[in-house]
Design a protein around this nucleic acid. Structure first.
Lengths: 225, 225
DNA sequence: GTCTATATAGCGATAGAC
DNA sequence: GTCTATCGCTATATAGAC
């Protein structure tokens, strides 16, 4: 078999195993067997196990980079259709994690082991999402469409719903015995909750809905209970 | 040192190391050194490494069981003060994960490694939360306080915000460079978003707020987009 | 209870033939 | 490019002295 082909085959199998058992939990022997070659072959293509792992992380991050580019994110958020923005984002995230559960596992292992993928992903993806989506929310607040609430908290809340839901499906409840719902429905419901949750009191609507809030707020700034 | 004392000391150190590096990532030698004893001592108290791990998981699950009993959960949800229910729950969850970040890491490692702690935790905690909180929501829907939406989806959304936020603080952004917020404030904001997100259209209020929704909903039940 | 010393197995990685 | 054989090391676990 040609060098490049074999290499990518080993990479694929290793990716699968690392995502299942983590870096330390996967042996080079297992990788070799899964790839149908001897251990020596693995080390011919990748000098060390660490190098193999890095190659995977690079590959995954790059592949994700093209799938989840900040450009696209920016484009989605460039409109003013709140429902479209949040629901599209949600559906894309849910579909991504569904189509590639390996990635989430790899990412988690990496974060737990303190590996660099975690940091790379954080810097390349997470920060951008918070920045772009945060800015979108901030703008809509200025326009009076969203109520006053820390945009970063809103992003945290929304990504929390999405990532936690994906994590549930990928890690905890793969058969979805507890909650079975299509990604389309989930994206819509989560968006529903969030948008109603942050829509401003005054009727100022562009989602095809007319929403009114009249709120008496005797709340203290720092709620104690 | 007395047997029981030494045993619990080893258990503590092992817990710390396992939470940091996972099962396979932690060596018995490290555990012994951290405990200030020889490796032989570790194996005197725990026949195998696996047994030590199980002891930890048992301990953690039991300790958590007393901290997070379903009774308390039920009691919290027995009232009809929506804000109190959700905010108290949120604050407790956030405080718990903050006070014991080890647990979340241990749980995650366990889930990734397919260990039994994950299943135990799922059955003892997660199912109860979904059941009890889901029932609460269902009741409030019957009373017309909450709009019609799958209660399980609401629980998923809310727990998603909380767990993901804790995970961020414990795993990804320990210094909270991206979003620094007290647990009290976070609990309040998340509750705010959720409650506004699921409050019914008609004014039917018991949270000290008067809320009005007027919504034209040409939505299909199973949304395709 | 605690240690040193050791058994045994599996790991990552290499040598060298083909 | 691919293999078998093997090295050096570290891992879990045990034996036996004190």
């Amino acid at each position: 078999m040609a060098g490049g082909e074999r290499r990518s085959q080993i990479l694929r199998e290793a990716m699968n195993l690392f995502s299942k058992h983590g870096f330390r939990g996967t042996t080079t022997k297992e990788i070799a067997q899964a790839s149908g070659v001897s251990e020596a072959m693995v080390f011919r293509h990748f000098a060390t196990k660490e190098e193999l792992y890095n190659a995977i992380l690079d590959y995954k991050v790059c592949a994700t980079g093209t799938e989840h580019p900040e450009e696209l994110l920016r484009e989605i958020a460039s409109g003013k259709d709140d429902r479209f923005v949040f629901e599209t984002l949600a559906l894309r995230a849910l579909e991504f994690h569904k189509s590639d559960p390996e990635f989430q596992r790899l990412l988690l292992h990496s974060a737990l082991e303190g590996h660099q993928l975690a940091r790379m992903f954080w810097e390349r993806m997470v920060l951008h999402i918070y920045e772009i989506l945060g800015n979108y929310i901030r703008e809509r607040q200025k326009e009076g469409a969203f109520r006053e609430v820390d945009p970063l908290v809103v992003v945290r809340a929304f990504t929390g719903m999405l990532i936690h839901h994906s994590l549930n499906n990928n890690l905890w409840d793969k058969e979805q015995t507890l909650l079975k719902i299509s990604n389309e429905d989930a994206a819509r419901e989560f968006t529903d909750i969030l948008l109603r949750g942050i829509t401003a009191n005054k009727s100022n609507d562009n989602t095809g809905k007319s929403v009114r809030f009249k709120i008496q707020q005797p709340e203290k700034k720092s709620g104690k209970r």
